[in-house]
């Protein structure tokens, strides 16, 4: 039940006030209604992390890329450290 899954916000379907919004989120093509009250800045096209029907965070694409490139960074760092040692 602790599972939170990323999905793409495809539409805002209802907006009662500034914060209370409901949107459609696509999880690999399966659409679900998601409460967007906790992510007021989420816009259509953003990837959001959804937990028990509520979006709890927006996924930062640039940070996602950094994660993928972490190992590369580690290797560079090692080289730097080694060259400093010598």
């Amino acid at each position: 039940m602790c599972l939170s899954i990323p999905g793409k916000l495809t539409a805002i379907t209802s907006q009662l006030d500034d914060t209370f919004r409901i949107g459609k989120v696509s999880f690999g093509g399966i659409l679900r209604d998601v409460n967007l009250s906790m992510v007021p800045t989420a816009a259509v096209g953003d990837y959001v992390l959804v937990h028990v029907g509520v979006a709890i965070g927006i996924i930062d694409e640039a940070e996602a890329h950094k994660t993928m490139e972490y190992l590369l960074k580690v290797e560079n760092l090692d080289e730097e450290l080694n060259s400093q040692d010598s």
């Binding site: 914060t19 906790m38 992510v39 965070g57 930062d60 940070e63």
Partner: peptide, 11 residues
Amino acid sequence: ARVVLREGNVL
């Protein structure tokens, strides 16, 4: 870091 901010989700 693609999801977690140091301050979390303040709202």
